[in-house]
Design a protein around this nucleic acid. Structure first.
Lengths: 209, 209, 209, 209
DNA sequence: CATGAATGAGATTTCATTCAT
DNA sequence: AATGAATGAAATCTCATTCAT
């Protein structure tokens, strides 16, 4: 990406990026043309090439940006959590809120599986690794299960809830969904009958974190 | 799709479909040209249009076919299972084996989110509904959790395991993965320390179903 | 055209010709495919090439056929007319009735201006010549006007009435239209006020011819 | 049609339109390729699509343009005429001169019967209506004939003279042709012997209008 | 005779990218 | 920095015609 040198250029670049989020997110990479982006950004097609070498690099720029944003926000939102499970819930909620706020972001990330698989894997693995690391750290707590498998299970939960409640069911109460996911997370199916019998000191409505 | 009227035509059609699976699966829909398909199927480009009205309808044909195949196979593989959990494990294993056997299928299904979102949602929802129905039927067993949320959680587990072990880790021992998923499924994180305390008569290595 | 040698072949050929009239007439030459013709004729596409060397020659076959039919029928329908004006009226009516009966024919003839201009000119000129010859024969009757110009004027009247009353106003009473055309033909605008003052012995409703 | 925003664009557009007139007019719509047009206009094929959404819309643009041009020019050329017959002659001459000057225009208009029948009918009917309106206004003058039939007769005269003298006999003296048409127009066949007995003050060679 | 699958040249159209202004 | 016209390679799709059966 070419950095703009004037504030006018900065504004133009912002419009282009915003337009790319909207159009890529709504119609997908291949169904979005440079002209579409230009029209939405209210610039001429040629202008886009002042800042990006090509369409692909504009897409990758968004992707990288999202990866950083998501991780940074989750780190912030889980910073103050006392227990691992609290952090888990806070992380899940942080994630869901972000994709709810910027659903285009999520669509773009998923599409990268077809457009820049390397970046997708990187994103995917970084999350899985994060889970696995945490699981490894909690060795005393949880035992005898392969933490790698477990990490992907947890990712699946997070992401499918994301897909469902962000793409298809936009009105959902995310806190409630997160609580239910956490209940399952902790007790599986067998424990679902006894949510009140969870660890002492836990509020039914979820922790304050 | 136009049905061929001769066996020669049937063979040609099969070659086209096989070629489409390979090429779409490997390179994605938008990076696959009709000429690519024709070359791999060893037909002239025009021949493809005898059987399919356009590239898109060929893609959708594969998609529908996969949906049916997957569901049918799962139904078969879970038919003899005594308990719901046995069936769940058998279903998961059936799914994983199918996507492992035909990884292109899975790639194509996921891509539909960008090509035919309606079909994707249909596929997605049909699976979720299947889970939810089962959960509703087991009302005595599992309680107080929203079965819709739960259904999507289960889907997430299945699919992310699919993504991981089919796309990125092709050598995995699927039986073992399925067992671990089932353990989590039943007991969540908190119960993972007691896999031997599961329902009586259950082999640690998974049921015979 | 290849003549069929069996009665089965004759029937097939007839179906093909009938189909060509319908399809070419309805959709025009370029918008009609060999497959369209085959489908309507209930034959395989290849069958058409048994009888015609190509699409174009099938079209020309129709065109020639029509030219002969029209002229032959007009000759028949005007054979018994005593006066030139009677013959003119009978000819006009014959023409209108034919194009009304087979509107596709007319459409096909007009299109030949773009597909086989040579044949169109031939058709066009043959009609014009016929008029001019008659006008030349009636030298005593009509004077001082260039018979070539006049011939084209008469053709214009015939054909535009054809276009209007055959293409756009299918329910018209052709006899009445023919009578009005003849009135104009004889007296022009200035004489239109005195139709009853025409030559003695003429029925208002047109001659019996 | 997309309007160009620069003079350079305007020039390009003009070249494209000019090329389309020439090529469509000479070879017909279906025998003219976009590459033909591009070559003649000295632009790349893609450039045509900047200004027109497709080949068809380029064709329709010409068609509409012609309709307007013809009507506008006739209106101008008949504006100063004192009598209806003078106006009629002037209109006929105006029409003939236009199609003589731009024979491609006429070819293109006729072809529309096969390409855009709706536009053809519109063109056709607008002319017929113009005649009919005039005839209705002259009710005192001409009586007892159906003005609609009459309108189409007059159109036929005009157009067939057009076809003949523009397509097949390009050297004709149009003034003379127009005068003869007018003579027929006024007196029909029966009156052709007395052209000198027309309304007083009329020059044998046609009015000055 | 008839079939219908197969061909492949050729047409239209798209669109990322370049470039003159 | 910005414009928007122009490019042209490449894609999809059509369809008259051929040919093996």
């Amino acid at each position: 990406m070419n950095e703009p040198k004037t504030t006018r250029g900065q504004k133009t670049l912002n419009r282009i990026i915003k337009a790319a989020e909207n159009e890529f997110g709504k119609k997908g990479y291949y169904n979005t043309t440079i002209n579409d982006l230009a029209a939405r950004a209210k610039v001429a097609p040629g202008t886009i090439y002042i800042y990006f070498s090509d369409k692909y690099s504009l897409y990758c720029h968004l992707l990288n940006r999202y990866g950083h944003e998501i991780r940074k926000k989750i780190a912030e939102d889980t910073a103050g959590c006392a227990t691992r499970l609290d952090a888990e819930r806070a992380g899940l909620l942080s994630f869901l809120r972000q994709v709810k706020k910027q659903p285009y972001m999520y669509q773009i990330i998923w599409e990268s599986l077809y457009i820049n698989p390397t970046l997708f894997v990187e994103y995917y693995e970084s999350f899985a690794l994060r889970y696995k690391t945490k699981l490894d750290e909690s060795a005393g707590e949880i035992t005898r299960m392969d933490n790698t498998v477990l990490a992907y299970i947890l990712m699946g939960i997070v992401n499918f809830i994301g897909l469902k409640y962000v793409f298809f069911d936009k009105g959902a109460d995310l806190e409630k969904v997160a609580d239910q996911a956490m209940a399952f997370y902790r007790y599986g199916l067998s424990g679902l009958g006894q949510p009140a019998e969870g660890p002492a000191g836990e509020q039914p409505g979820g922790s304050a974190c």
